[in-house]
Amino acid sequence: MILSILVNEGPYTHQASDSAYQFAAAALAKGHEIFRVFFYHDGVNNGTRLTTPPQDDRNIVSRWSKLGEEHKLDLVVCVAAAQRRGIVDEGEARRNGKDATNLAPGFRISGLGQLIEAGIQSDRTVTFGD
C-alpha cells in the first residue's frame, strides 16, 4: 500500500511525533511504500538539526534523517509553518535575510500543496496529532 504521513506535533512534547516515526518504520518493515511524510503545525520542529537531547534519550530528529536516508523518504516541512517557528534552510535564509540555517539532513521545505498531492497519490494518508 502507498502511504503518506502527516505529523502535526512537535518532538519530545507530544507522543504523536514518536508514534508517527514508529508507524513509518513498521509500515516500511512490512513492505509498504511511503510516498511522503509531511510536517505541519509544531510538527515542523521535528526537522531542526540543532536538537540536542540528553545522551540517554532518543534523538527524534536524527532518527527521521536516518530512516529517510535508508528508505529514500521524502520528508517535507511546510514552509509557512516553518517560517513561523524558525525552521530555515539555505533558500529560506537567503529570501528572508536570516543569518543561520537549521534544517536537518534529509528534510526539505516546501508548500502545503505537497500535502494535498500526498493525499491524491497515496492509498491512505495517516494523521498523527492531538
Partner: peptide, 25 residues
C-alpha cells in the same frame, strides 16, 4: 475539532482548505 484561538490549529488548517481548493479537490 479545536477552538479558533488558544492553539494555532484552526488558523493553519484553513490554509490546507484553501490549497486543497486551489488543487481543484
Amino acid at each position: 475539532r479545536k477552538a479558533p484561538y488558544g492553539t494555532v490549529y484552526a488558523l493553519e488548517s484553513l490554509e490546507v482548505v484553501l490549497i486543497g481548493a486551489a488543487f481543484e479537490q
